[in-house]
Design a binder for these strands. Sequence first.
DNA 1: CCGCATCCTGGATGATACTG
DNA 2: CAGTATCATCCAGGATGCGG
Lengths: 122, 122
Amino acid sequence: MSEELQGETCQELQAALDIISGKWKPIILFHLMENEKLRFSELQRAMPEITKKMLTSQLRELEYNGIIHREVYQQVPPKVEYSMTEYGNSLSPLMKSMRSWGMKHLQRMEKMESADKKEAVN
Amino acid sequence: MSEELQGETCQELQAALDIISGKWKPIILFHLMENEKLRFSELQRAMPEITKKMLTSQLRELEYNGIIHREVYQQVPPKVEYSMTEYGNSLSPLMKSMRSWGMKHLQRMEKMESADKKEAVN
DNA sequence: CCGCATCCTGGATGATACTG
DNA sequence: CAGTATCATCCAGGATGCGG
């Protein structure tokens, strides 16, 4: 066993996961990858369940990590636009392969569920 | 905007994330990918911080999802070995690219930190 | 040795109201 | 419009002890 280095060996994994995982991050990233630029209110409309507080905090984290850009227009009423940074877009291949793995997995699990049902009936 | 389908569009993403994310899953997967077979107690030794309860529950989830195999040896004292399934190993490329993205990210963040310090000094 | 049952805490998340 | 402030809630995760 490679003692001692579990934590360190996985911190890169964790670092990546911190950014793309969570209840809202994937959805936010998805929308911003699809849309070039989105206003705060547009994001909110796209995710009716999310509260302003959560949306704000998640966006701030992504901004802090350099994944998204926050553009404030000095005007009344206020206007703020969010967009992926170039760096943020480097996540795209990862997200895509995660999505396709996830898709296969869901299909697989579905099959197993129905197999279970058959077993249960027998 | 693609209304209505945010949740569904991201459920594949979430499905994949559910499996590899969390405080312990990445570490467990890492060890099992490195080691072919590991006993419960070996895993525990490899992750001194984890409680038995957490280790058990995380292993059960992974088993339920078909990622790992649980082999019980009928003997006293009990012996249980865990190993990646073939299906579980299909996660390997994903994990690898996550790791390399995370590694770059950590380096990038480090640079930015030290840049911040310089600014603070100025 | 392996793992379940019970109880419990803290941090993440949510509801609501307010503001520049 | 785009947030902040405050308070309430919830549940993943942890501590501990028992049992096959």
